[in-house]
């Protein structure tokens, strides 16, 4: 199986979908410049550079999606989405409902985020939960090259607006990616490692951090299950509950800050639906409630580390010992 980086996997998915469906087009800041291969295959009408103006990029995508096209827009860095909130949230997310179902918005908005590049808080803000909180949108944040391809294909074929977040630290990591259709359904989590003592729920690059922690825990005789959410909305509640019912312990890990984050949603779900199965409190290991730093050591401190996760799991397994407070990072 060919090895592709995440960026290559996304590019392959987009090219295959554009080949399959002439209504698919892509535009954004530097899109045509960065993808000459797409321009030469599909032409400059379907692969476009845009002004540096996120509002009109997202609004044009929403307007085009509602009237017969299937646009993909690259909005570059997640903090830039602040300029496109009206178009994404008020238009793409709401106008289907508000029109009584007259319109659909089959579009994908791509944005990068996450620590690892020391780009600072105006290029790095894990704001994916904002969109989970907005009706009508779907939110995807994969962790492996194969999933980036499969989820991108599924997102392009979906009839709804999909926010597709790329964790920067993963962008150039190679992995096996099958050729052709590798559709990964939206809303389906993946078990990355099976275990029986504690469930580690995560998404994006911290899935790999959880896998490292699970390795350490295994050496100590603690069996950790690692669940990769992949899609944050719709959330695969069944997979979360199935795992927690099995292990009775839950650590939720993400780089985004804790308050009202995906971890809070997962914890609330488990509290409501699997309370009787819990053997210990639910713990979140997250980035701090602070802007993302630029300085390398600060950024490393910002990103959840394997030791913090394994320590939390260890405490949960050894019942009666105190657990770390929400919001603490490694």
């Amino acid at each position: 199986m060919p090895l592709l980086t995440v960026n290559e996997a996304i590019g392959q998915a987009i090219a295959e979908e554009m080949r399959r469906d002439s209504r698919v087009l892509i535009f954004g800041e530097g899109t045509a410049t960065k993808h000459p291969e797409l321009v030469s295959e599909f032409g400059s009408a379907r692969v476009r550079n845009t002004p540096l103006a996120e509002g009109i990029i997202a609004g044009t995508a929403a307007g085009a999606a509602a009237t017969g096209l299937r646009p993909i827009v690259d909005l570059l860095f997640a903090p830039f989405l602040c300029f496109a909130m009206d178009e994404l949230v008020n238009s793409a997310g709401k106008l289907r409902y508000m029109s009584g179902g007259q319109f659909a918005f089959p579009m994908v908005a791509l944005a990068m985020t996450g620590g690892g590049w020391t780009v600072g808080a105006q290029h790095n803000h894990n704001l994916e939960a904002w969109f989970v909180h907005s009706p009508g949108l779907k939110v995807v944040m994969p962790s492996t090259p194969a999933d980036f391809k499969g989820l991108m294909q599924a997102a392009i074929r979906d009839e709804n607006p999909v926010l597709f977040f790329v964790d920067l630290a993963l962008a150039f990591v190679p992995g096996e990616v099958p050729e052709g259709d590798v559709l990964v359904p939206l809303g389906q989590a993946a078990i990355r490692r099976e275990g029986s003592d504690v469930t580690l729920v995560s998404y994006a690059k911290t899935v790999h951090t959880c896998l490292q922690a699970a390795e350490t825990l295994a050496e100590e005789g603690i069996s950790a299950e690692v669940l990769d959410l992949r899609t944050l909305k719709p959330l695969d509640t069944e997979s979360i509950l199935r795992s927690v019912r099995k292990t009775g312990r839950l650590v939720v890990v993400h780089e985004a800050a804790a308050p009202c984050g995906v971890g809070a949603e997962v914890a609330a779900l488990v509290a409501a639906e699997a309370f009787a199965d819990l053997k210990a409190p639910v713990v979140r290991i997250t980035g701090p409630d602070a802007p993302a730093p630029s300085s390398y050591p600060l950024e490393q401190a910002f990103i959840p580390q394997p030791d913090a996760i394994s320590a939390a799991a260890r405490r949960l397994v050894a019942l009666g010992l105190p657990v770390s407070a929400p919001g603490s990072a490694g």
Partner: peptide
């Protein structure tokens, strides 16, 4: 189509609708 009461919302959507007409 796409009536928006966000003042200016219609201006952001019109370019997309026109892009569909063109393509």
């Amino acid at each position: 189509i796409l009536t928006s009461t966000i003042v200016g919302g219609e201006l952001s959507l019109a370019t997309g609708a026109a892009l569909s007409r063109e393509m």
